[in-house]
């Protein structure tokens, strides 16, 4: 199942379904249309869902929000960890709520963020994101988890770990 989104081309070869979740085209059946944040792609497999969010920092347009009020371009952007972490966190949470309302949160959900950082920075961001999503049954009152796992990785690592879902820059 091939999906093109935000400058990347995916092929989820074993997916039951995969679609652009934040679809802006009203004519498409999966049109999102709500004032909620949304991840780029949702893919369904027999035992799990994955939510995929891409942030391509080689794309100048991606810089704009991060740049707001900050003159020291590249370095500050990369240093703006908090902004990015919150950006990724709220996208997941709103998507989860949307999918819950669709009655489509019935399998474990893995959140995969595809960024253009090095592995070391990705692991640091992943740690913060896991704590804040949060991943797992973190409250004694929870009967289920809202995220089963969370991974922040670059294109090279994606292709090493997910050979059934190859990704290329489109």
């Amino acid at each position: 199942m091939k999906i093109d989104a935000d400058g990347f081309s995916f092929d989820f070869t074993d997916a039951i379904n995969a679609f652009v979740f934040d679809e802006k085209d009203e004519s498409k059946p999966n049109y999102h249309g709500l004032p909620m944040k949304a991840v780029d792609i949702v893919a369904e497999f027999s035992d799990a869902y994955i939510f995929v969010e891409m942030k391509d920092f080689h794309d100048p347009d991606s810089y704009n929000e991060v740049l707001a009020g900050d003159e020291d371009d590249g370095k500050a952007k990369r240093a703006n960890f908090k902004w990015l972490k919150n950006y990724l966190k709220y996208k997941y949470r709103d998507t989860y709520i949307f999918r819950h309302a669709e009655d489509k949160a019935d399998k474990p959900i893995h959140y995969i963020c595809l960024l253009t950082f090095d592995n070391a920075l990705n692991t640091r961001l992943q740690k913060s994101l896991m704590q804040e999503l949060p991943v797992g049954k973190v409250s004694k009152r929870w009967r289920r988890e809202i995220a089963n796992s969370c991974h922040v990785l670059n294109v090279d690592r994606w292709n090493i770990n997910f050979p059934k879902w190859p990704v290329t820059r489109s």
Partner: peptide, 15 residues
């Protein structure tokens, strides 16, 4: 570390 974390939490998904 990224690979081992994925292996630990996602098992064979995507492989």
């Amino acid at each position: 570390f990224v690979d081992r974390e994925i292996e630990k939490s996602m098992g064979k998904l995507g492989k």
